[in-house]
């Protein structure tokens, strides 16, 4: 049973039609011993990717694909790494992006696909001054 209604799909298609870059969602899951939400995460990203020919899902095995895990710094699953034209956007999502978590996923895809930042000029100026590593971990829930 699909997660997205046909009305949601139509709306999302409109938003995703603005994408000009190739967006790749690397989905890291594990079959045994991992979170039970890996399948849900896969269904969410698959349904989203089906709405745009610019969005692709590439599945990675959290246990076996250690090189990719190291490359993208993925330390838990399920994980989604967002790439733009093959380049790392440094945006990660951990856990199934369902419920309210779906919106940040769509926003990340749109950002990776359009490179249009919605930040204020003053904020961008502050961010331009960052010269040392900053790691943000944002905790939220689907409800």
């Amino acid at each position: 049973m699909p997660l997205l209604s046909s009305a949601d799909e139509q709306l999302l298609k409109q938003h995703l039609s603005t994408i000009t870059k190739e967006v790749t969602l690397l989905l890291f899951t594990q079959t045994f011993g991992g979170s039970e939400t890996g399948l849900l995460a896969k269904q969410v990203v698959d349904e989203l990717a089906a709405l745009s020919d610019k969005v692709t899902v590439v599945e990675k095995n959290f246990v076996l694909d250690t090189e990719d895990r190291a490359k993208y710094g993925v330390d838990k699953s399920p994980a989604i790494v967002v790439l733009s034209d093959g380049e790392d956007t440094r945006i990660r999502m951990y856990g199934a992006p369902s419920g309210y978590e779906f919106v940040p996923l769509v926003e990340a895809v749109l950002l990776a696909g359009t490179h249009e930042l919605e930040l204020e000029p003053a904020t961008l100026a502050l961010l331009a001054g960052v010269t040392t590593p900053v790691h943000l971990q944002v905790f939220s829930t689907p409800t």
């Binding site: 710094g73 978590e101 930040l119 961008l124 961010l127 943000l136 905790f139 939220s140």
Partner: peptide, 27 residues
């Protein structure tokens, strides 16, 4: 923020799925 500066990385974490982290950071 992460997209705006290559020094920044951003992880969105579903709090109820990763309870160890949720406890560690007292979420």
């Amino acid at each position: 923020m992460a997209f705006a500066n290559p020094h920044i990385t951003a992880s969105a974490i579903e709090a109820t799925e990763f309870m160890e982290l949720t406890r560690r950071y007292q979420v």
